[in-house]
Design a binder for these strands. Structure first.
Lengths: 208, 208
DNA sequence: TAAAAATCACCCCGACTGGGGGATACGCAG
DNA sequence: CTGCGTATCCCCCAGTCGGGGTGATTTTTA
């Protein structure tokens, strides 16, 4: 184990921060090179730490974790970031992933799992827990009992991707008026009366 | 081990089909109740098999696996479906997940892993391999060096969700004309000249 | 401080939207 | 066989949106 993996912790809760630091330093091959209680404090000197991995709390005072993510990614592009969160809500975690996080830890993550997660993320994967995997699957799975017919679903998808009626018509080789009819029926079925309402309603129910 | 988990295999390759059947039946707690060489043959009698899990090949003659998925889900709503595929392409697997699959196996999946995957899927999760997890993460991760400003990104996201200019204006508490200005700048930056082109281009590059 | 982003404003005009009416044809289930 | 749903096509009309062009002020950021 030549050079240990350098870790920085950004977490406002002293107990958790010190706990994590102690836990990680107890393992050969891992070294906490610095800790901060907020991103605002961290941002000026963190580049000098040259961390391989950052553990970043989501609930931070000042600049929140989600907002800090893109900034960290910009100043340390190759550094991997693990989110620490108490919220296990789909939205928070997806937001984090979308903003450059490589994985997440819960504050209730067992101590031994933390090292495991860091190791995993360094080896090129992302520690997607089984829970995330399930979220992702269910978020991808389309509702089976959509009131929309196959054609209607297809048209709504095109509408949802920003296509106009005439573009949809050209793409499906059908008449502009046919598209209109379908859209009218879609509106009736979803009980809406505009594109955006239809898209919102359909996405909410995973019809598209 | 009271009642074994009932499995049906739909796979056109005799060797693979028989191999899987043998492998699974060799395990207590799992029982292959029937096998079919195509969905078209399976669809009439598969309800009588009352399977807990279906192993479904994607490359099927006649009705392909992706097309078969929603049909199977309709006639057997509570049955879990695992896809068997040689393609490990992102698109194929995402399509499968979106159409109701709970996970996937590759034809090169080690024998022991097959049982593991079936057990996992029955226990409520989805066997998302590390590979899928990586795909998902990278597909969720937003491009860091977007040419769009924060505000422009925000507006493009609203546009992409089907909102009209005036709706965006109301939602962001800015003037209708301001929205227009932003959209125009977005178009210039992305080198497009319509909503749908902008949305397509931005999604392709993960700017949104 | 200088550059970039965000905000607001006005012009024109063609294209699109949504709501109303209706028609034909096909397949499938009762 | 007769609905029912689906898919296809057609007309009218008022209102909105979209894109192009140009210019200005303020705030934020580098």
């Amino acid at each position: 184990m030549g050079t240990p993996i350098k870790i920085v912790i950004i977490e406002d809760d002293d107990t958790i921060r010190n706990g994590y630091e102690f836990l990680i330093n107890a393992n050969n091959g891992f070294k906490v090179v610095n800790t901060y209680s907020s991103f605002d404090i961290a941002q000026h000197t963190i580049t000098a730490d040259r961390p391989d991995v950052i553990l970043l709390d989501i609930q931070l005072p000042g600049t929140g974790g989600i907002a800090a993510l893109p900034k960290l990614k910009r100043i340390l592009p190759s550094t991997l970031i693990l989110i620490i969160t108490v919220y296990e809500s789909e939205q928070v975690i997806f937001d984090a992933l979308m903003n450059g996080a490589s994985g997440y830890l819960t504050k209730s993550t067992p101590s031994v799992k933390i090292i495991e997660a860091i190791r995993e993320v360094c080896e090129g994967g992302g520690p997607m827990s089984v829970n995330i995997a399930r979220m992702v699957i269910s978020s991808f799975r389309r509702n089976q009992d959509s009131p929309l017919s196959k054609r209607e679903t297809q048209i709504l998808e095109l509408i949802a991707s920003g296509k106009s009626r005439s573009m949809v018509a050209k793409e499906l080789f059908i008449d502009l008026e046919t598209v209109r009819s379908h859209i009218k029926k879609i509106y009736i079925k979803l009980d809406v009366n505009s594109r955006s309402e239809a898209i919102t309603a359909a996405k909410k129910n995973k019809f598209i």
